[in-house]
Design a protein around this nucleic acid. Structure first.
Lengths: 252, 252
DNA sequence: TAGTGGTCTAGACCACTGA
DNA sequence: CAGTGGTCTAGACCACTAT
């Protein structure tokens, strides 16, 4: 669950309050935030929750702070929520475009050596393989190759993959995706890529390879997404002293 | 400064201790960490610093935790420190390769419209422009275009850019880089790229564009780095509930 | 039900910034 | 110098997991 506890905790309220202030323009970039003491008073709380809230905003790259200085609002690319980072459907909607898909193949296969290694299963174990072309507002912008161990993939064999998000389907089936690793690079389009995306063979594509895991660390998905670089870029804001962020933006 | 305070704070010690346990293999992926109570005892401290340390490791994607559960070590790509994310020289050393560079040009120019926009100065204002080819162990792997407002760039006019890191030079000159935004995409090599990197025109390149800022939000650097995709990839680990990370790996 | 992490309180001292 | 954020203490209660 993302929302573990029911009653909104105080620090969550403070995060929401400040996020709204920033996104609504009540607090503009460069401006000082209320002091921690102010926030304690306003939310009738102690410094703990206030500092927890400010820490979250700092990690998201929204504010910066430092000893002796008031915290200030930064101008930055906002970090994406976990789900948006994992789902083309949700990413597309976030961008204000209508997601679409055409499934080229959806098959039950037996794992090759490479697939078995990625999913930490044995060569020849059953897997489910998907090749889908993804659209934004009707334009093809990404070619997606997915691979699941059978235990997970069986949930999409009985599902019309042209009807929507596999990610949402899996979550609905109780598959608990806890964390994911992503690797980004550039590749030249091969014959299949070029044909389906309607470009020249050899054109540059952004490749995003992803492995998703359960909380126990078992791989439950492997994917290879190839984007038209004109339609997707990846961005991150790095703030001294905070964790790095990565997010995906609409192309130019 | 990255290390603001001298005496190592307790939470820093705990982070270092746990990071070592993990990287040395004393704690392996999947294994439980000591309980918070254990860590309090071991470091003779209260829960505050212990939880702060665990929060840092969680944001770095090294561990996961949850109510009622022991925290466990994850198998993930570690996040890079701030400096490594900004400096080719430091990144290269981190990878165990010897960084090198050949400066193709270093000039004092007047800002074009686009440059002026990126640096938030006026068209025609003085700037310093750099074009450098970067090597790892003698092999060209990246072409770097840098652009600085004159106030900042003047520090490198009186510096041999073939002698090392411009980033370190600027930091040494007191230029305070506080945060940066990065945008990643793929482009086809143009004639200049192809010539200097020794590849075919049209070959795919990873492009990383960066803007670095002072704490006040003033841009102090704009850059466009083009990597051979065979030698650089970008990775991130996304954990539900934590900030996203981005880091850079050695190519295949 | 016992153990654990998530959240919170109400203090304290220190390092640093800015007037 | 006063004000502010960074760090820490020593408690507390609760929600959740595992047994």
């Amino acid at each position: 669950m993302t929302a573990t506890t029911r009653g909104a905790q105080t620090y969550r309220e403070i995060v929401t309050f400040l996020r709204r202030e920033i996104s609504s323009g009540a607090l503009v970039p460069g401006q000082s935030l209320p002091t921690e003491a102010d926030l304690c008073t306003r939310f009738q709380t102690s410094r703990g929750p206030v500092r927890q809230a400010l820490g979250i905003l700092r990690d998201e790259g929204l504010i910066s702070s430092g000893r002796g200085r008031r915290s200030v609002v930064l101008e930055t690319v906002p970090v994406q929520p976990f789900d948006v980072a994992l789902s083309f459907t949700q990413w597309c909607r976030e961008m204000g475009a209508e997601p679409g898909q055409r499934t080229e193949s959806l098959t039950r296969e037996w794992a090759t050596r490479a697939q078995a290694d990625s999913l930490e299963i044995e060569e020849g174990d059953p897997i489910v393989d998907v090749l889908r072309l993804r659209f934004a507002d009707g334009t093809p912008i990404m070619l997606e190759r997915l691979c699941y161990p059978f235990e997970v993939g069986r949930h999409i064999l009985s599902f019309d993959p042209d009807s929507g998000s596999i990610y949402e389907r899996l979550v609905a089936c109780g598959v608990d995706i806890h964390h994911a690793t992503r690797i980004l690079d550039a590749v030249a389009a091969d014959a299949v890529d070029a044909d389906l995306l309607g470009i020249e063979e050899g054109s540059p594509l952004m490749r995003l390879r992803r492995r998703a895991f359960t909380i126990e660390g078992h791989p439950i998905e492997w994917s290879d997404d190839r984007y038209l670089p004109s339609h997707a870029r990846f961005a991150s804001t790095t703030v001294r002293g905070a964790a790095n962020g990565l997010s995906m933006l609409r192309g130019v």
